[in-house]
Computed example of a mutant assay.
Amino acid sequence: MELRGKQKRYLRAQAHDMRPLFSIGKQGMSQNWLDQLSDAIDKRELFKVNILPNSDVTVAELQAFIEDNSDIQVVQSIGHTLVLFGESKDKDRRHYSTAVKAI
């Protein structure tokens, strides 16, 4: 699902008070790390990822890696933090995606 401006604004507002759930450090990006992100999307649909200062990964590289290798979308990047969104496979956990579709 391609997000429109109002939908992104809603998701950014919902993620404002959240703390980063995942961090990426020295080990960088791997398929195992991406699988963990996908599992978290199925449970939460919306969360933040933080890039640690000791990481060799840039924000643009991380954003491209996530969007190219999964169905997770980057809603916003602020400094070294990314806000990620994806629709849950479990219909009972689709809180944010149902609200986004209604907008």
Rank of each mutant, 00 (worst) to 15 (best):
D39M: 11
A64H: 05
S30C: 08
S23A: 04
L62V: 07
L34S: 01
D17W: 00
D42R: 11
F65L: 02
K43H: 09
E67D: 10
N32P: 02
Q63M: 11
K26G: 09
W33D: 04
H16S: 07
R12C: 04
E67C: 14
D68A: 12
I51S: 09
V59H: 04
K26F: 03
P53Y: 03
L37A: 13
V59N: 04
F65W: 05
D17N: 07
M18S: 14
A60W: 03
H16V: 07
M29A: 08
A15I: 03
R44H: 14
E45F: 04
M18A: 09
A64E: 07
R9F: 01
M29C: 06
V57T: 15
L62H: 11
H16I: 04
L46H: 02
W33K: 10
Q36V: 01
L46Y: 02
D68N: 14
A15H: 02
A13R: 04
P53I: 12
L11W: 01
K48F: 01
A60T: 14
I66V: 14
A60K: 11
E45V: 08
L11A: 01
I51M: 09
G28W: 03
D17P: 03
F22Q: 11
E67M: 15
Q7C: 10
F22S: 14
L37M: 13
R12L: 05
D35G: 09
K6M: 13
I24L: 01
I24G: 00
I41S: 12
L62S: 10
V59R: 02
D42P: 09
L52C: 09
N69A: 10
E61P: 02
S38T: 13
A64M: 12
R44V: 14
K8W: 01
R19V: 15
N32S: 11
S30I: 04
L11E: 00
R19F: 10
E67R: 14
A60L: 06
A40V: 10
K6D: 15
Y10R: 00
L62M: 11
L34R: 01
E45P: 12
I66A: 10
M29Y: 06
R19Q: 14
G28S: 05
H16K: 14
D56I: 15
S23M: 04
F65D: 02
E61Q: 10
A13C: 01
D56Y: 11
T58K: 12
S23T: 10
I51R: 08
F47T: 10
D68R: 13
N32D: 06
L46F: 03
